[in-house]
């Protein structure tokens, strides 16, 4: 099958069109994704997408040779090689190119490769397919600074978003108690698991975020902190919309790197973490929450967004969504 260049999607004159390269060996999937991205992509406005398709790594590379794409999305399993290899070649040609992978299989199997190749977004093919997430992922890749904020992920008209600031170590359990009370009326089957997730996330933000001048962690986990400096306080927000609840936990340091997150996930998936607890919190959060989005505004703020569906939980196969800028 030869690569096809698309007719330009109908975009109002004057709006920018971003060029996307889509690689998947299944033609019907390529058709569907292209149709969606060109005609139904709605997260973010004022621009449109134009999608070129390829069915193999070789075809994809051919496309890359002739066009400077803004974004490449590739299936992992391809007939002649794999998506990781394709992205390596794409980045060799265009160092700053934005990239994501798609897979029908278990995310866990690819975390190590994602870590090694610095891939931070992997979309999972579930049935039904989450087009909303695809739309959000594409927008976040093109405009990562717009990925932050809980409001971004809850439907318009969501309930009021609560906001608290953790100023000392006692606030961790105080905020946790409020979060548990907030979740209780929804009678979630995973309530207990989520409670654990919240403890991990809140605790880690307070203890692991603050750095001293040398860049080392300032506080020791477990020690009582009477008062965090203004620059060390942590903002926690939560709210609910029609089908999910959301929590965001945000620090003012932005010391976490995307590669750190993958390092933690990988060592817990592989079992290397058995002798220590390094990264266990992030792993548990990722494992037990329906959706986790990690926003890394380097040097400014690290934000963890936790989304959990109230009923009709999504398929087990979770995507990887880390936005670093």
């Amino acid at each position: 099958m030869t690569a096809q260049t698309s007719a330009t999607a109908t975009a109002p004159a004057g709006t920018k069109t971003y060029k996307l390269l889509l690689i998947d060996d299944e033609s019907s999937i390529r058709d569907n994704l292209k149709e969606y991205l060109e005609n139904h992509h709605h997260v973010g406005s004022g621009y449109s997408l134009s999608v070129d398709e390829a069915a193999t790594v070789a075809e994809g590379v051919d496309c890359l040779k002739t066009t400077a794409y803004d974004l490449v999305i590739s299936d992992i399993n391809l007939p002649d090689s794999n998506g990781f290899e394709l992205l390596r070649q794409a980045r060799a040609m265009y160092p700053g190119i934005k990239a994501a992978l798609i897979t029908a299989y278990d995310l866990d199997s690819y975390i190590r490769m994602a870590k090694e190749d610095h891939i931070y977004n992997i979309i999972t093919k579930t049935a039904p397919f989450n087009f909303e997430e695809l739309s959000r992922t594409v927008h976040n890749l093109l405009f990562p600074d717009e990925a932050m904020g809980l409001e971004t992920y809850l439907e318009v008209g969501a309930s009021q978003i609560e906001h608290r600031v953790m100023k000392n170590s006692d606030d961790i359990m105080k905020v946790h108690a409020e979060l548990v009370a907030f979740m209780k009326p929804f009678d979630l089957p995973d309530h207990d698991a989520l409670s654990v997730v919240m403890v991990e996330a809140l605790t880690n933000a307070v203890y692991h975020a603050p750095r001293d001048e040398a860049g080392e962690e300032k506080y020791i986990k477990g020690e009582h902190i009477d008062q965090l400096l203004e620059s060390e306080t942590v903002d926690v927000k939560w709210g609910v919309d029609g089908d999910k609840l959301g929590v965001s936990i945000r620090d003012k340091f932005g010391a976490v790197k995307a590669s750190d997150v993958l390092f933690w996930l990988d060592r817990n998936i592989s079992g290397e973490s058995i002798f220590d607890t390094h990264g266990r919190g992030m792993y548990l959060i990722h494992r037990l929450t329906h959706r986790v989005i990690v926003n890394l505004w380097r040097g400014k703020s690290t934000e963890l967004i936790l989304l959990h569906y109230l009923s009709d939980p999504p398929a087990d196969n979770k995507p990887l969504a880390i936005n670093e800028f």
């Binding site: 299944e26 019907s28 999937i29 569907n32 994704l33 149709e35 969606y36 005609n39 139904h40 029908a104 299989y105 093919k125 579930t126 049935a127 039904p128 397919f129 087009f131």
Partner: peptide
């Protein structure tokens, strides 16, 4: 069963897109 994933994705995506249109 592994191979079923792509056809199922196609059916699902196709249906969703029809609904959107």
């Amino acid at each position: 069963v592994h191979e079923l994933s792509n056809p199922l994705s196609s059916i699902s995506m196709g249906t969703q897109l029809i609904a959107m249109s």
